[in-house]
Design a protein around this nucleic acid. Sequence first.
DNA 1: CAGTGAGCGAGCTTCCGCTTGACTT
Length: 671
Amino acid sequence: MRLLIVESPTKAATLKQFLGKDYDVQSSFGHVRDLPKSKLGIDVEKDFEPSYVIPTKSRKAVNVLKKAAKEATEVILATDEDREGEAIAFHLKVALELDDPKRIVFHEITKQAIQEALENPRSINMDLVDAQQARRILDRLVGYKLSPFLWKKVARGLSAGRVQSVAMRLISEREKEIAAFKPEEYWSIEADLEQKTTKKEFTAQLTKEDAKALAKMAITSEKDAKAILTNLKEAAYTVSNVEIKEGKRNPLPPFTTSTLQQTAWQQFKYPARRTMQLAQKLYETGLITYHRTDSFNLSSLSLAAAEKVITKNYGKEYWAGPRRFKNRSKGAQEAHEAIRPSDPAKVPSAIKLSPDQIKLYTLIWNRFTASQMKEAVFNATTIDIEAKSYTFRATGQILLFDGFLKVYPMRFEQAELPEVKVEETLTLNKLNPLQHFTQPPPRYNEASLIKELESEGIGRPSTYASIISTIQDRNYVEKNDDKRFEPTEIGTTVNDLLVEHFPSIVDIKFTATMEDDLDKVAEGTTEWVPMIQKFYDPFAKILEEKYEEVEKSDVSVQETDEKCPECGKPLLIRLGRFGKFYACSGFPECKHTAPLKENTLGIDCPKCKKGNLVAKRTKRRTTFYGCDKYPECDFALWDRPTGTKCKECDSLLIEKNKKVQCSNSECSSHK
DNA sequence: CAGTGAGCGAGCTTCCGCTTGACTT
């Protein structure tokens, strides 16, 4: 019996079917050894020697694997072919006390690919393992050195890291751009025109004055726009150019983790976490390929299956021939295929699952199938019309062949234009001046943040969802009513502090530079210890200086003119983990605290009559409304009070599911 | 349904990336 170890139990089960009775196939459930959670675990004085432990979570898997290894004639490590996979193989070797395990890799789960892999074993690539160790150690040093700095200088429980701090910075900087943004007025002018012979109407946009493009015409006020309208009085509208071109639109590549998360957000508003939970189920059920991937690769088998499905369901003219896509994103490791249906012949309508799972499977199936379908073809018409010194332009497009759009619809605005000839004059029905204002850049949502992180090579498919959780768990950001991220006070404070004092760490390019260095380690051209040393020495020195230089009171304490209602000493505004609050300067003798006035609702507490109601959060981040005199008064409501009282019982009215009702469940008007 | 702060000492918070359940809402 030979033992073959992979990372995922689902993959193990699939492989078992291919390998038969002579093989025991087990899974490691990811990494099996890691740095200890409760301390740094790196001896910075001794060439950054790491002390790895087997986390309690991995203990069970390691025991099972140890036993299986003892019974096996041979152990084959078949973890993923990337940095992390190689490191898992190495840690398995150590944890299972293996002498000379075979190391194999395969990219497809087919009989042939597995056979080939088994015939070409190699040993563990220690350069690649070292690159992973360097990555792990650097992340630990940054995270476990900077976080305690924040505890000391801002508030306990905060955190910083190579990835999360840059994600936070993106959000923070976007907010600053929005705050600094000054909208500028501009105008456009459109002409409603009509062909004299057919009476067909269409609209054209003013694009030029003489040869000057619209942007340079600087129509920045109603006065400017009106001046043009005056100039155009009694002008003749003559067609000066007609151009008809055939356009093509190509399908998008199949999904990777990041594009699946983005699209599921755009189409269904699923948070990344939810998408991953659903995808996990689909993967375990055997319906889709592995869902944590950055690769667009498609196996030959899947391409052959796509041909069959497309010709059968849509006709031969919809089959594009096998289409392959290249990944251009930074830091892609491509250990897996793209996310696609395991068996494209399983059309979504034949699947029996929960509605949410079907929705996601359908999306994955459509995207994959469309990626192998013919491009959409359309006619694009451009008509230029001259009126005095001005040029107007009308554009239209007509779909000639839907191609992949049949399966994966994308925005396509069909617009038909009349058949006009050069020098033909048109009737002007109306000129419409339209006022616009330039818009600030939009705040990030889950989709746009993941997109930005991926394009900078920050984070990995397995971590995008957790990055989003982390910055919310730390109260650094909140989702607004549009589900877009806004920084909190504590988030802004931490970001500004890191940007000011540790600019190189929270530099958006930091990860890209690190990856270049890691590549050199993986190639064997650089040693990992000097690489880390070169980073750590200046970092440790700056950190030491900053412990001296930065004063906590400058960061998180503000003085006020107000007096403590309990003891009369001056009140301070302190910044804690959950935002700003009033605190007595006489602490610890006086323990008075209160929420900021601007956070209260301006509604008196109906129970103690002294307090004011304020929105608060539970530990699970759900909002409730309580008395600001807590703990003296424990009045609280789940739903937002309107500020008016019930006519029947004098209790507060609340807003529930967009309807107003009485907060008193005993009251006859409760419902 | 409810936190946060100071300073003394204890003990604890914290990173990223690989993988699933075992928990409870």
